[in-house]
C-alpha cells in the first residue's frame, strides 16, 4: 500500500487528471493566443500551463512525471523563452528602435493583429510556464534530499 501511495494518488484521481490535463493546456493556449484581444496574456496563460504540469506531478508522483518531463527541459525552455523575447525586442531595431512594434498591426479585435504583442505573449508563456514548473520541481527535489538524509 505504502509503495503504491508513494507513486501518486488513487486511480480515480489519475484517470480524471489524464482526461482533464489536455483541456487545461488547451485553455492555457487559448488565454495566451487571445492575450492581445481579451484579458489574459502570456503570464496568465503560462501559469495555467505550468499548473497543468504541476497537476500531473501531484497526481502521478515525482518519479513518474520527472521521467516524462525531465526538469532540464524546463530550464532549457525557460532560457529559450527569454531569448525569444529578447530577440523580438532586438528585431525592433530593423524599424529603428528597441522594442519597436515592427509588424503591421492589422485590424483591432482580430486574432492576427497587434504586431509583435502575440509573439511576445508566446515567448513570455514559455518563460513563465517553464519557470514556474522549474521552481516547483526544484522545491520538490530539495525536499527529497532532506528525506534521504533522515
Amino acid at each position: 500500500m505504502i509503495q503504491e501511495k508513494h507513486k501518486g494518488m488513487s486511480l480515480i484521481v489519475k484517470t480524471i487528471t489524464r482526461l482533464t490535463v489536455g483541456f487545461i493546456i488547451l485553455y492555457g493556449i487559448y488565454i495566451i493566443s487571445h492575450g492581445h484581444v481579451s484579458p489574459g496574456g502570456g503570464f496568465a496563460g503560462g501559469v495555467i500551463i505550468a499548473l497543468s504540469f504541476i497537476h500531473l506531478m501531484l497526481a502521478y508522483g515525482k518519479e513518474e512525471t520527472l521521467k516524462r518531463l525531465p526538469h532540464n527541459a524546463a530550464s532549457i525552455l525557460e532560457s529559450i523563452g527569454a531569448l525569444l523575447f529578447l530577440m523580438i525586442a532586438v528585431l525592433g531595431f530593423t524599424g529603428g528602435s528597441f522594442f519597436l512594434n515592427f509588424i503591421p498591426k492589422g485590424e483591432p479585435f482580430r486574432l492576427f493583429s497587434a504586431g509583435i504583442i502575440p509573439l511576445c505573449n508566446v515567448a513570455i508563456s514559455f518563460k513563465v510556464s517553464a519557470g514556474l514548473f522549474a521552481i516547483f520541481v526544484a522545491l520538490v527535489l530539495l525536499k527529497l534530499d532532506t528525506e534521504k538524509k533522515e
Binding site: I135, A138, L139, L142, K143, D145, T146
Partner: peptide
C-alpha cells in the same frame, strides 16, 4: 507580483536549505 513570486520562491528555497 511577478517580482514577488521570484523573490519569495528564492526565500522559500533558502529556508528549506536552512532547515536541512
Amino acid at each position: 507580483i511577478v517580482i514577488g513570486v521570484a523573490s519569495m520562491a528564492l526565500l522559500i528555497a533558502i529556508a528549506m536549505r536552512i532547515y536541512e
